[in-house]
Design a protein around this nucleic acid. Structure first.
Lengths: 226, 226
DNA sequence: CATAATTTTTAGGCTTGCCTAAAAATATTT
DNA sequence: AAATATTTTTAGGCAAGCCTAAAAATTATG
Protein backbone atom coordinates (compact mmCIF):
# COMPACT_ATOMS: atom_id res chain seq x y z
CA UNK A 1 0.00 0.00 0.00
CA UNK A 2 2.44 2.68 1.10
CA UNK A 3 5.70 1.30 -0.17
CA UNK A 4 8.31 3.76 -1.33
CA UNK A 5 8.66 3.86 -5.10
CA UNK A 6 11.81 4.55 -7.09
CA UNK A 7 12.10 7.67 -9.20
CA UNK A 8 11.76 5.48 -12.23
CA UNK A 9 8.55 3.86 -11.04
CA UNK A 10 7.12 7.26 -10.21
CA UNK A 11 7.97 8.54 -13.68
CA UNK A 12 6.20 5.61 -15.28
CA UNK A 13 3.04 6.24 -13.29
CA UNK A 14 3.13 9.94 -14.12
CA UNK A 15 3.56 9.37 -17.84
CA UNK A 16 0.87 6.72 -17.99
CA UNK A 17 -1.42 9.24 -16.37
CA UNK A 18 -0.56 11.96 -18.87
CA UNK A 19 -0.96 9.65 -21.85
CA UNK A 20 -4.37 8.42 -20.75
CA UNK A 21 -5.65 11.78 -19.48
CA UNK A 22 -8.82 12.65 -21.32
CA UNK A 23 -8.97 9.44 -23.34
CA UNK A 24 -10.48 6.16 -22.18
CA UNK A 25 -7.84 4.31 -24.13
CA UNK A 26 -5.24 2.04 -22.65
CA UNK A 27 -1.66 3.27 -22.99
CA UNK A 28 0.51 1.43 -25.49
CA UNK A 29 4.02 0.24 -24.76
CA UNK A 30 5.46 2.24 -27.62
CA UNK A 31 3.77 5.46 -26.60
CA UNK A 32 5.24 5.10 -23.13
CA UNK A 33 8.64 4.25 -24.57
CA UNK A 34 8.67 7.47 -26.54
CA UNK A 35 7.61 9.65 -23.60
CA UNK A 36 10.14 8.05 -21.30
CA UNK A 37 12.98 7.93 -23.82
CA UNK A 38 13.43 4.22 -23.30
CA UNK A 39 13.14 1.12 -25.43
CA UNK A 40 9.90 -0.81 -25.60
CA UNK A 41 11.52 -3.80 -23.94
CA UNK A 42 12.36 -1.74 -20.89
CA UNK A 43 8.77 -0.62 -20.68
CA UNK A 44 7.53 -4.19 -20.72
CA UNK A 45 9.87 -5.05 -17.85
CA UNK A 46 8.63 -2.19 -15.72
CA UNK A 47 4.95 -2.73 -16.52
CA UNK A 48 5.23 -6.26 -15.20
CA UNK A 49 6.71 -4.92 -12.00
CA UNK A 50 4.10 -2.20 -11.58
CA UNK A 51 1.35 -4.70 -12.33
CA UNK A 52 2.69 -6.94 -9.57
CA UNK A 53 2.53 -4.00 -7.20
CA UNK A 54 -1.06 -3.41 -8.31
CA UNK A 55 -0.34 0.08 -9.54
CA UNK A 56 -1.24 -0.64 -13.16
CA UNK A 57 -3.38 -3.22 -14.82
CA UNK A 58 -1.54 -4.76 -17.69
CA UNK A 59 -2.45 -7.41 -20.21
CA UNK A 60 0.26 -8.62 -22.57
CA UNK A 61 0.10 -6.96 -25.97
CA UNK A 62 -2.92 -4.93 -24.87
CA UNK A 63 -1.32 -1.94 -23.14
CA UNK A 64 -1.76 -0.71 -19.61
CA UNK A 65 -3.92 1.43 -17.37
CA UNK A 66 -3.46 2.87 -13.90
CA UNK A 67 -5.31 1.24 -11.02
CA UNK A 68 -7.02 3.54 -8.52
CA UNK A 69 -3.99 3.25 -6.28
CA UNK A 70 -1.62 3.95 -9.16
CA UNK A 71 -3.62 6.95 -10.26
CA UNK A 72 -3.65 8.34 -6.74
CA UNK A 73 0.13 8.22 -6.65
CA UNK A 74 0.47 9.68 -10.14
CA UNK A 75 -1.74 12.62 -9.22
CA UNK A 76 0.31 13.36 -6.13
CA UNK A 77 3.49 13.41 -8.20
CA UNK A 78 1.85 15.83 -10.60
CA UNK A 79 0.75 17.93 -7.62
CA UNK A 80 4.34 18.10 -6.48
CA UNK A 81 5.63 18.88 -9.94
CA UNK A 82 3.23 21.77 -10.42
CA UNK A 83 3.66 23.22 -6.94
CA UNK A 84 7.42 23.25 -7.40
CA UNK A 85 7.05 24.93 -10.78
CA UNK A 86 4.90 27.58 -9.16
CA UNK A 87 7.51 28.04 -6.45
CA UNK A 88 10.30 28.44 -8.98
CA UNK A 89 8.45 31.03 -11.02
CA UNK A 90 6.77 32.96 -8.19
CA UNK A 91 9.57 32.93 -5.64
CA UNK A 92 12.87 32.17 -7.38
CA UNK A 93 12.45 34.23 -10.56
CA UNK A 94 12.56 31.35 -13.01
CA UNK A 95 11.04 31.81 -16.45
CA UNK A 96 8.27 29.37 -17.43
CA UNK A 97 10.58 27.74 -19.93
CA UNK A 98 13.23 26.98 -17.30
CA UNK A 99 11.22 25.19 -14.66
CA UNK A 100 10.44 21.84 -16.20
CA UNK A 101 13.76 20.04 -15.72
CA UNK A 102 14.22 21.17 -12.15
CA UNK A 103 10.62 20.30 -11.27
CA UNK A 104 11.21 16.81 -12.68
CA UNK A 105 13.82 16.37 -9.97
CA UNK A 106 11.90 18.07 -7.19
CA UNK A 107 8.72 16.06 -7.80
CA UNK A 108 10.43 13.00 -6.32
CA UNK A 109 11.21 14.54 -2.94
CA UNK A 110 9.46 12.45 -0.30
CA UNK A 111 7.79 14.60 2.35
CA UNK A 112 4.11 15.24 2.72
CA UNK A 113 4.79 17.90 5.31
CA UNK A 114 7.01 19.72 2.83
CA UNK A 115 4.58 19.63 -0.03
CA UNK A 116 1.60 20.70 2.06
CA UNK A 117 3.72 23.42 3.63
CA UNK A 118 4.80 24.57 0.19
CA UNK A 119 1.17 24.64 -0.94
CA UNK A 120 0.29 26.86 2.00
CA UNK A 121 3.38 29.03 1.52
CA UNK A 122 2.38 29.64 -2.10
CA UNK A 123 -1.19 30.50 -1.08
CA UNK A 124 -2.87 27.33 -2.34
CA UNK A 125 -2.46 28.12 -6.05
CA UNK A 126 -4.97 26.49 -8.39
CA UNK A 127 -2.87 26.63 -11.56
CA UNK A 128 0.81 26.37 -12.36
CA UNK A 129 2.84 28.76 -14.53
CA UNK A 130 1.73 26.96 -17.71
CA UNK A 131 -1.93 27.15 -16.76
CA UNK A 132 -2.23 23.50 -15.75
CA UNK A 133 -4.39 22.72 -12.71
CA UNK A 134 -2.64 21.80 -9.46
CA UNK A 135 -4.27 18.77 -7.78
CA UNK A 136 -5.15 19.37 -4.13
CA UNK A 137 -4.03 17.27 -1.18
CA UNK A 138 -6.91 14.87 -1.77
CA UNK A 139 -6.04 14.51 -5.44
CA UNK A 140 -8.94 16.55 -6.80
CA UNK A 141 -8.07 18.31 -10.06
CA UNK A 142 -10.16 21.31 -11.06
CA UNK A 143 -10.01 21.10 -14.83
CA UNK A 144 -10.94 24.28 -16.64
CA UNK A 145 -14.15 23.08 -18.22
CA UNK A 146 -14.26 25.76 -20.90
CA UNK A 147 -10.73 25.20 -22.15
CA UNK A 148 -10.23 24.32 -25.81
CA UNK A 149 -7.19 24.12 -28.06
CA UNK A 150 -6.38 27.26 -30.01
CA UNK A 151 -6.47 25.05 -33.08
CA UNK A 152 -10.16 24.38 -32.49
CA UNK A 153 -11.37 27.97 -32.25
CA UNK A 154 -13.74 29.53 -34.79
CA UNK A 155 -12.90 32.52 -36.96
CA UNK A 156 -13.81 35.94 -35.59
CA UNK A 157 -13.78 34.99 -31.95
CA UNK A 158 -11.91 36.62 -29.11
CA UNK A 159 -10.19 34.20 -26.74
CA UNK A 160 -7.90 34.28 -23.73
CA UNK A 161 -4.80 32.09 -23.44
CA UNK A 162 -5.18 29.92 -20.34
CA UNK A 163 -2.53 27.23 -20.79
CA UNK A 164 0.43 26.10 -22.83
CA UNK A 165 1.97 22.68 -23.11
CA UNK A 166 5.03 22.65 -20.90
CA UNK A 167 6.76 19.78 -22.63
CA UNK A 168 8.38 21.72 -25.43
CA UNK A 169 11.14 24.03 -24.36
CA UNK A 170 11.38 25.61 -27.80
CA UNK A 171 7.64 26.35 -27.90
CA UNK A 172 7.83 28.12 -24.57
CA UNK A 173 10.81 30.17 -25.69
CA UNK A 174 9.02 31.06 -28.91
CA UNK A 175 5.91 32.20 -27.05
CA UNK A 176 8.08 34.33 -24.78
CA UNK A 177 9.60 35.94 -27.84
CA UNK A 178 6.29 36.87 -29.44
CA UNK A 179 4.99 37.95 -26.02
CA UNK A 180 2.21 35.47 -25.88
CA UNK A 181 1.56 34.70 -22.21
CA UNK A 182 -1.16 33.32 -20.00
CA UNK A 183 -3.93 35.92 -19.95
CA UNK A 184 -3.05 37.27 -23.40
CA UNK A 185 -6.15 37.89 -25.54
CA UNK A 186 -6.21 36.78 -29.15
CA UNK A 187 -8.48 37.59 -32.07
CA UNK A 188 -8.86 34.63 -34.42
CA UNK A 189 -8.61 36.14 -37.90
CA UNK A 190 -8.22 33.35 -40.42
CA UNK A 191 -7.63 29.64 -40.89
CA UNK A 192 -5.70 28.30 -43.87
CA UNK A 193 -6.95 24.97 -45.04
CA UNK A 194 -3.80 23.80 -46.81
CA UNK A 195 -1.71 23.51 -43.64
CA UNK A 196 -4.32 24.28 -40.99
CA UNK A 197 -2.28 27.20 -39.70
CA UNK A 198 -4.19 30.17 -38.29
CA UNK A 199 -3.78 33.91 -38.32
CA UNK A 200 -4.38 35.63 -34.98
CA UNK A 201 -3.91 39.10 -33.60
CA UNK A 202 -2.59 39.59 -30.09
CA UNK A 203 -4.83 42.25 -28.57
CA UNK A 204 -2.56 45.24 -28.12
CA UNK A 205 0.17 43.50 -30.11
CA UNK A 206 1.14 42.05 -33.46
CA UNK A 207 -0.57 39.80 -35.98
CA UNK A 208 0.86 36.31 -36.22
CA UNK A 209 0.59 33.11 -38.18
CA UNK A 210 0.66 30.07 -35.95
CA UNK A 211 1.18 26.57 -37.30
CA UNK A 212 -1.28 23.82 -36.47
CA UNK A 213 1.33 22.25 -34.21
CA UNK A 214 1.72 25.43 -32.19
CA UNK A 215 -2.01 26.06 -32.02
CA UNK A 216 -2.64 22.56 -30.71
CA UNK A 217 -0.36 23.24 -27.78
CA UNK A 218 -2.07 26.40 -26.62
CA UNK A 219 -5.22 26.24 -24.52
CA UNK A 220 -7.72 29.09 -24.70
CA UNK A 221 -11.06 30.17 -23.25
CA UNK A 222 -13.71 31.71 -25.49
CA UNK A 223 -14.60 35.26 -24.54
CA UNK A 224 -16.83 36.63 -27.33
CA UNK A 225 -17.28 37.13 -31.03
CA UNK A 226 -15.76 40.15 -32.67
CA UNK B 1 35.67 18.07 -14.55
CA UNK B 2 31.97 18.74 -14.59
CA UNK B 3 30.56 15.28 -14.87
CA UNK B 4 27.28 14.59 -13.12
CA UNK B 5 27.69 12.51 -9.98
CA UNK B 6 25.22 10.01 -8.57
CA UNK B 7 23.50 10.65 -5.24
CA UNK B 8 25.69 7.97 -3.78
CA UNK B 9 28.92 9.53 -5.01
CA UNK B 10 27.82 12.90 -3.68
CA UNK B 11 27.07 11.39 -0.29
CA UNK B 12 30.50 9.83 -0.12
CA UNK B 13 32.19 13.16 -0.85
CA UNK B 14 30.05 14.92 1.72
CA UNK B 15 30.78 12.42 4.48
CA UNK B 16 34.49 12.33 3.73
CA UNK B 17 34.44 16.10 4.11
CA UNK B 18 32.60 15.93 7.44
CA UNK B 19 34.89 13.24 8.82
CA UNK B 20 38.06 15.11 7.92
CA UNK B 21 36.77 18.58 8.83
CA UNK B 22 39.04 20.09 11.42
CA UNK B 23 41.49 17.18 11.51
CA UNK B 24 44.42 16.67 9.12
CA UNK B 25 43.86 12.94 9.31
CA UNK B 26 42.92 10.76 6.41
CA UNK B 27 39.49 9.16 6.63
CA UNK B 28 39.38 5.44 7.34
CA UNK B 29 37.25 3.00 5.45
CA UNK B 30 35.48 1.87 8.60
CA UNK B 31 34.65 5.39 9.72
CA UNK B 32 33.06 6.05 6.36
CA UNK B 33 31.21 2.75 6.47
CA UNK B 34 29.63 3.70 9.77
CA UNK B 35 28.58 7.19 8.65
CA UNK B 36 27.15 5.85 5.40
CA UNK B 37 25.50 2.79 6.89
CA UNK B 38 27.28 0.51 4.48
CA UNK B 39 29.77 -2.31 4.71
CA UNK B 40 33.49 -1.62 4.49
CA UNK B 41 33.71 -3.58 1.25
CA UNK B 42 31.22 -1.26 -0.40
CA UNK B 43 33.30 1.70 0.71
CA UNK B 44 36.41 0.24 -0.87
CA UNK B 45 34.56 -0.21 -4.16
CA UNK B 46 33.41 3.38 -4.24
CA UNK B 47 36.72 4.85 -3.14
CA UNK B 48 38.36 3.20 -6.11
CA UNK B 49 35.82 4.77 -8.38
CA UNK B 50 36.13 8.22 -6.83
CA UNK B 51 39.92 7.97 -6.97
CA UNK B 52 39.69 7.21 -10.65
CA UNK B 53 37.59 10.33 -11.11
CA UNK B 54 40.23 12.29 -9.20
CA UNK B 55 37.80 13.35 -6.51
CA UNK B 56 39.61 11.58 -3.67
CA UNK B 57 43.17 10.44 -3.20
CA UNK B 58 43.20 6.91 -1.96
CA UNK B 59 45.99 4.53 -1.02
CA UNK B 60 45.07 0.95 -0.22
CA UNK B 61 44.85 0.32 3.51
CA UNK B 62 45.75 3.95 4.22
CA UNK B 63 42.41 5.71 4.03
CA UNK B 64 41.30 8.54 1.77
CA UNK B 65 41.27 12.30 1.42
CA UNK B 66 39.38 14.68 -0.83
CA UNK B 67 41.22 16.28 -3.71
CA UNK B 68 40.69 19.99 -4.29
CA UNK B 69 38.08 19.14 -6.90
CA UNK B 70 36.37 16.67 -4.56
CA UNK B 71 36.32 19.16 -1.73
CA UNK B 72 34.86 21.82 -3.97
CA UNK B 73 31.99 19.53 -4.83
CA UNK B 74 31.50 18.42 -1.22
CA UNK B 75 31.27 22.02 -0.05
CA UNK B 76 28.66 22.83 -2.67
CA UNK B 77 26.55 19.88 -1.52
CA UNK B 78 26.82 21.11 2.06
CA UNK B 79 25.84 24.58 0.85
CA UNK B 80 22.72 23.12 -0.71
CA UNK B 81 21.91 21.05 2.36
CA UNK B 82 22.12 24.02 4.71
CA UNK B 83 20.27 26.42 2.44
CA UNK B 84 17.43 23.94 2.11
CA UNK B 85 17.32 23.47 5.89
CA UNK B 86 17.10 27.21 6.29
CA UNK B 87 14.28 27.31 3.75
CA UNK B 88 12.36 24.59 5.55
CA UNK B 89 12.62 26.26 8.95
CA UNK B 90 12.23 29.90 7.88
CA UNK B 91 9.58 29.50 5.20
CA UNK B 92 7.81 26.15 5.64
CA UNK B 93 7.50 26.03 9.42
CA UNK B 94 9.62 22.94 9.99
CA UNK B 95 11.22 22.38 13.39
CA UNK B 96 14.98 22.04 13.49
CA UNK B 97 14.66 18.36 14.30
CA UNK B 98 12.55 17.68 11.18
CA UNK B 99 14.69 19.14 8.45
CA UNK B 100 17.61 16.76 8.17
CA UNK B 101 16.03 13.91 6.22
CA UNK B 102 14.32 16.15 3.72
CA UNK B 103 17.47 18.23 3.23
CA UNK B 104 19.37 15.01 2.52
CA UNK B 105 17.09 14.57 -0.46
CA UNK B 106 17.03 18.19 -1.57
CA UNK B 107 20.82 18.57 -1.49
CA UNK B 108 21.06 16.42 -4.61
CA UNK B 109 18.87 18.62 -6.80
CA UNK B 110 20.97 19.73 -9.74
CA UNK B 111 20.47 23.43 -10.55
CA UNK B 112 22.87 26.23 -9.82
CA UNK B 113 20.24 28.77 -10.75
CA UNK B 114 17.90 27.28 -8.17
CA UNK B 115 20.40 27.23 -5.36
CA UNK B 116 21.66 30.73 -6.00
CA UNK B 117 18.07 31.94 -6.33
CA UNK B 118 17.20 30.22 -3.07
CA UNK B 119 20.19 31.87 -1.38
CA UNK B 120 18.97 35.27 -2.55
CA UNK B 121 15.36 34.49 -1.62
CA UNK B 122 16.47 33.62 1.91
CA UNK B 123 18.52 36.82 2.18
CA UNK B 124 21.97 35.23 1.93
CA UNK B 125 21.88 33.58 5.36
CA UNK B 126 25.27 32.91 6.97
CA UNK B 127 24.16 30.08 9.30
CA UNK B 128 21.63 27.29 9.11
CA UNK B 129 19.02 26.42 11.79
CA UNK B 130 21.57 24.36 13.74
CA UNK B 131 24.11 27.17 13.74
CA UNK B 132 26.36 25.63 11.08
CA UNK B 133 27.91 28.00 8.55
CA UNK B 134 26.50 28.07 5.02
CA UNK B 135 29.26 28.06 2.36
CA UNK B 136 28.88 30.82 -0.21
CA UNK B 137 28.71 30.36 -3.99
CA UNK B 138 32.51 30.33 -4.16
CA UNK B 139 32.74 27.71 -1.42
CA UNK B 140 34.01 30.00 1.30
CA UNK B 141 32.92 28.89 4.77
CA UNK B 142 32.93 31.49 7.53
CA UNK B 143 33.64 29.32 10.56
CA UNK B 144 32.81 30.92 13.88
CA UNK B 145 36.32 31.35 15.18
CA UNK B 146 35.31 31.64 18.81
CA UNK B 147 33.16 28.51 18.90
CA UNK B 148 34.01 25.79 21.42
CA UNK B 149 32.19 22.68 22.61
CA UNK B 150 30.05 23.11 25.69
CA UNK B 151 32.05 20.23 27.15
CA UNK B 152 35.20 22.35 27.02
CA UNK B 153 33.92 25.40 28.89
CA UNK B 154 35.31 26.49 32.25
CA UNK B 155 33.28 26.73 35.42
CA UNK B 156 31.65 30.06 36.22
CA UNK B 157 31.50 31.31 32.69
CA UNK B 158 28.53 32.64 30.82
CA UNK B 159 28.20 31.33 27.25
CA UNK B 160 25.78 31.54 24.34
CA UNK B 161 24.64 28.48 22.38
CA UNK B 162 25.66 28.98 18.74
CA UNK B 163 25.32 25.50 17.25
CA UNK B 164 24.07 21.99 17.81
CA UNK B 165 25.01 18.81 15.99
CA UNK B 166 22.24 18.09 13.54
CA UNK B 167 22.96 14.40 13.18
CA UNK B 168 21.07 13.20 16.21
CA UNK B 169 17.33 13.46 15.99
CA UNK B 170 16.85 12.52 19.62
CA UNK B 171 19.31 15.18 20.80
CA UNK B 172 17.47 17.87 18.88
CA UNK B 173 14.14 16.74 20.30
CA UNK B 174 15.59 16.72 23.79
CA UNK B 175 16.97 20.24 23.40
CA UNK B 176 13.59 21.39 22.18
CA UNK B 177 12.01 19.90 25.27
CA UNK B 178 14.32 21.63 27.72
CA UNK B 179 14.04 24.84 25.68
CA UNK B 180 17.67 25.06 24.82
CA UNK B 181 17.91 26.87 21.48
CA UNK B 182 20.42 28.80 19.43
CA UNK B 183 21.00 32.08 21.25
CA UNK B 184 20.16 30.61 24.67
CA UNK B 185 22.59 31.77 27.36
CA UNK B 186 24.02 29.27 29.82
CA UNK B 187 25.86 29.64 33.11
CA UNK B 188 28.39 26.86 33.64
CA UNK B 189 27.98 25.84 37.27
CA UNK B 190 29.85 22.60 37.89
CA UNK B 191 31.71 19.75 36.26
CA UNK B 192 31.59 16.25 37.70
CA UNK B 193 34.82 14.36 37.21
CA UNK B 194 33.40 10.85 37.51
CA UNK B 195 31.35 11.03 34.31
CA UNK B 196 32.38 14.44 32.97
CA UNK B 197 28.79 15.63 32.99
CA UNK B 198 28.22 19.32 33.68
CA UNK B 199 25.64 21.35 35.55
CA UNK B 200 24.41 24.45 33.77
CA UNK B 201 21.69 27.02 34.31
CA UNK B 202 19.69 28.31 31.38
CA UNK B 203 19.53 32.09 31.87
CA UNK B 204 15.88 32.76 32.60
CA UNK B 205 15.21 29.06 32.88
CA UNK B 206 15.98 25.88 34.72
CA UNK B 207 19.13 24.23 36.01
CA UNK B 208 20.19 21.09 34.14
CA UNK B 209 22.70 18.29 34.19
CA UNK B 210 24.07 17.52 30.77
CA UNK B 211 26.04 14.39 30.00
CA UNK B 212 29.43 14.62 28.37
CA UNK B 213 27.91 13.25 25.21
CA UNK B 214 25.29 15.97 25.05
CA UNK B 215 27.79 18.70 25.95
CA UNK B 216 30.11 17.62 23.16
CA UNK B 217 27.38 18.15 20.63
CA UNK B 218 26.57 21.72 21.61
CA UNK B 219 28.73 24.60 20.37
CA UNK B 220 28.96 27.77 22.44
CA UNK B 221 30.62 31.18 22.41
CA UNK B 222 32.17 32.57 25.59
CA UNK B 223 30.53 35.77 26.79
CA UNK B 224 31.99 36.53 30.26
CA UNK B 225 32.76 35.21 33.70
CA UNK B 226 30.06 35.29 36.30
C1' DC C 1 -7.50 -14.14 -46.07
C1' DA C 2 -2.79 -14.66 -46.41
C1' DT C 3 1.20 -12.04 -46.33
C1' DA C 4 3.68 -8.02 -44.90
C1' DA C 5 4.48 -4.51 -41.51
C1' DT C 6 4.33 -3.10 -36.98
C1' DT C 7 4.17 -3.66 -32.14
C1' DT C 8 5.32 -6.05 -28.17
C1' DT C 9 7.57 -9.51 -25.58
C1' DT C 10 11.34 -12.68 -24.40
C1' DA C 11 16.08 -13.83 -23.65
C1' DG C 12 20.39 -12.63 -22.42
C1' DG C 13 23.74 -8.83 -21.07
C1' DC C 14 25.57 -4.65 -18.92
C1' DT C 15 26.46 -1.06 -15.07
C1' DT C 16 25.71 0.75 -10.50
C1' DG C 17 25.86 0.12 -5.84
C1' DC C 18 25.21 -2.73 -2.55
C1' DC C 19 26.04 -7.45 -0.02
C1' DT C 20 28.69 -11.83 2.31
C1' DA C 21 32.61 -14.59 3.07
C1' DA C 22 37.33 -15.27 2.81
C1' DA C 23 41.99 -13.48 2.29
C1' DA C 24 45.46 -10.05 3.08
C1' DA C 25 47.42 -6.20 5.37
C1' DT C 26 48.03 -3.54 9.41
C1' DA C 27 47.87 -2.76 14.46
C1' DT C 28 48.07 -4.34 19.10
C1' DT C 29 49.50 -7.42 22.82
C1' DT C 30 52.25 -10.20 25.29
C1' DA D 1 59.16 -10.22 17.54
C1' DA D 2 55.51 -13.63 17.48
C1' DA D 3 50.80 -14.24 18.13
C1' DT D 4 46.39 -12.21 18.10
C1' DA D 5 42.99 -8.84 16.90
C1' DT D 6 41.35 -5.50 13.86
C1' DT D 7 40.88 -3.30 9.56
C1' DT D 8 40.66 -3.41 4.79
C1' DT D 9 40.51 -5.55 0.39
C1' DT D 10 39.27 -9.15 -2.93
C1' DA D 11 36.12 -12.31 -5.07
C1' DG D 12 31.82 -13.57 -6.27
C1' DG D 13 26.72 -12.50 -6.14
C1' DC D 14 22.33 -9.93 -6.36
C1' DA D 15 18.52 -6.45 -7.70
C1' DA D 16 17.25 -2.44 -10.40
C1' DG D 17 16.81 -0.52 -14.66
C1' DC D 18 18.37 -0.10 -18.75
C1' DC D 19 20.04 -2.22 -23.46
C1' DT D 20 20.16 -5.26 -28.18
C1' DA D 21 18.61 -8.95 -30.97
C1' DA D 22 15.41 -12.35 -31.96
C1' DA D 23 10.82 -14.32 -31.51
C1' DA D 24 5.90 -13.89 -31.07
C1' DA D 25 1.59 -11.51 -31.38
C1' DT D 26 -1.20 -8.15 -33.47
C1' DT D 27 -2.61 -5.08 -37.15
C1' DA D 28 -2.67 -3.52 -41.82
C1' DT D 29 -2.66 -4.40 -46.74
C1' DG D 30 -2.94 -6.39 -51.43
Amino acid sequence: MNEILSHSEENYLKEIFHLSEGTNQKVSTNALAERLNAKASSITDMLKKLAEKKLVSYIKYKGCELTDEGEKIAVQIIRKHRLWETFLVNKIEFGWEEVHDVAEQLEHIQSIKLIDGLDKFLGYPKFDPHGDPIPDKEGKISYRKSKIQLSETVINSLVEVVSVNEDSLSLLKYLDEIELNLGTELKILERYTFDESIKVKIVGGQELNLSKKVAENIGVRFISEI
